[in-house]
Amino acid sequence: MAERGESSEAVMLKKTEEEKLRKGKMIVGDESKAGYEEEGKKVKLVTSDGVTMEVEISIVKEMEIIQTFIGATDTDDSFIFPISNVSSHILNQIIELVKGEYDQELAKKLSHDELKEILVAANYLNMKTLFHFIATAIANVIQNKSVEFVRDFFGIVNDFTEEEEAELRKTNAWAFEGVDED
């Protein structure tokens, strides 16, 4: 997986302070569960649309980009982590997927846009299991579909000229001949 979201700790904490001042609060999840147990602990994440969400630590622990900071702050719940690449809608979807133990049935309910957004988010947050899950789900969507479908799915502009594409299909003809049995 790509190593991205390279904010240093300092930048992150500074941002955190700013976000804290600027943003309103939105509580997600069952507050009554929050107790002294480790499971009940929540971490505040600020999404790209400026929503502060409290997310269970068990889920946040899968986000390797944030995990290192959790260790440092431990029980202190005053820290807020900005996740500028992920919207609150997508974060909610991610929480559902993690809680649903990555059931591929859940993936079938997601729109193509959601699938792609979750892929970007999983890559950014460095959530390995989610990334693998969503990559599989996307592969299931594009499997046995035409090249045009895949191009549309990823929103790619074809930058080949007609001649170039025809030439490429010709040189790689061995990959375009025959039909898969399955």
């Binding site: 990559a135 592969a139 499997q143 090249v147 080949f160």
Partner: peptide, 26 residues
Amino acid sequence: LSDEVLQHILEFLPTRQAIQTCVISK
């Protein structure tokens, strides 16, 4: 997304279909 991310998705496909994506873009 890096090439690795796209390759990771494509590797779940039958290799032949994955190779056919070569005409998607440069």
